[in-house]
């Protein structure tokens, strides 16, 4: 074996190691990413209680505030408009009870099917129970939309642009990703309540209550334990974190 052969081998080996390093390094970084993002407000269990008896037909404060706060786009096509929160009216078939208003949003399930089925781990759940979508990982396959029984997710069908009215604290989502309610996570991390809850309070309705279920002194923890509440489709075992009173 000559020196020249050894040197050639060494160079080839070094080149191979470099190539492998360059190839694998991004993967290693990406593998580490989910662990970093699960630390936010750990120990809390955010939840919402909606008193449908206090919610009125004519009021759209929550949906309007949500759209404004989160730059939720309207495309003017009813079946393709994005909704983070929407209102459903339930009327008793026999008209023995007054109709009730049910604002429906992502239920931030403890056992979220959208997270389980996501092929790229774009949908994930934080330690505090908030289910989010990483827009940089979402490929727009829409399996999460199929899996969600609450129809809480929407695909962004068209390109959207930032305007003077857009909220600078919330990024504009690009065409082709799936988005949904975040419980206004950017506000929560700043110690504020979700925009819909704040708007509801401003209207003087008090139909929406938000808080930490893990804190026994919180209003929501007391109400959920003392008042008769329901969740939507409890039979699915998803443990939703949006509770309804008066349904």
């Amino acid at each position: 074996m000559t020196m020249a052969t050894i040197e050639r081998r060494a160079v080839l080996g070094l080149g191979g190691a470099l190539a492998a390093g360059v190839t694998l390094a991004p993967g290693i970084t990406l593998l580490a990413a989910p662990a970093e993002r699960t630390e936010a407000s750990a120990g809390r269990r955010w939840a919402m209680l909606i008193d449908s008896t206090q919610c009125t037909n004519s009021c759209t404060a929550c949906t309007t505030a949500c759209r404004k706060e989160n730059n939720v786009p309207l495309f003017g096509e009813p079946s393709r408009d994005v909704h983070w929160i929407r209102k459903v009216e339930l009327r008793d078939k026999d008209q023995r009870r007054p109709s009730v208003q049910v604002p429906v949003l992502c239920n931030h399930c403890e056992n979220p099917p959208c997270v389980h089925v996501c092929p790229t781990e774009a949908s994930f759940i934080r330690k505090d129970g908030i289910v989010l979508v990483d827009m940089h990982r979402c490929i727009g396959c829409r399996y999460c939309i199929i899996a969600c029984p609450y129809k809480a997710r929407s695909l962004v069908y068209h390109e959207t642009r930032r305007t003077d009215e857009s909220n600078p604290n919330v990024p504009i989502r690009s065409k082709g990703v799936v988005e949904k309610c975040t419980f206004c996570v950017h506000r929560l991390d700043d110690g504020q309540e979700p925009a819909c809850v704040e708007a509801c309070k401003k209207e003087g309705k008090g139909a929406m209550l938000f808080g930490d279920l893990n804190d026994p002194r919180s209003e929501i923890a007391k109400r959920v334990h003392t008042v008769a509440t329901k969740t939507i489709r409890p039979d699915l075992g998803l443990k939703p974190r949006v509770y309804y009173q008066g349904l």
Binding site: G27, L30, H116, T120, C141
Partner: peptide
């Protein structure tokens, strides 16, 4: 796909999610 170019994510180990049937 909503993001056709991102089909490549399905083939990258760092993105692969074992509980996702897809």
């Amino acid at each position: 796909l909503g993001k056709p170019v991102r089909f490549i994510y399905l083939l990258i180990p760092g993105y692969w999610h074992s509980t996702g049937p897809m």
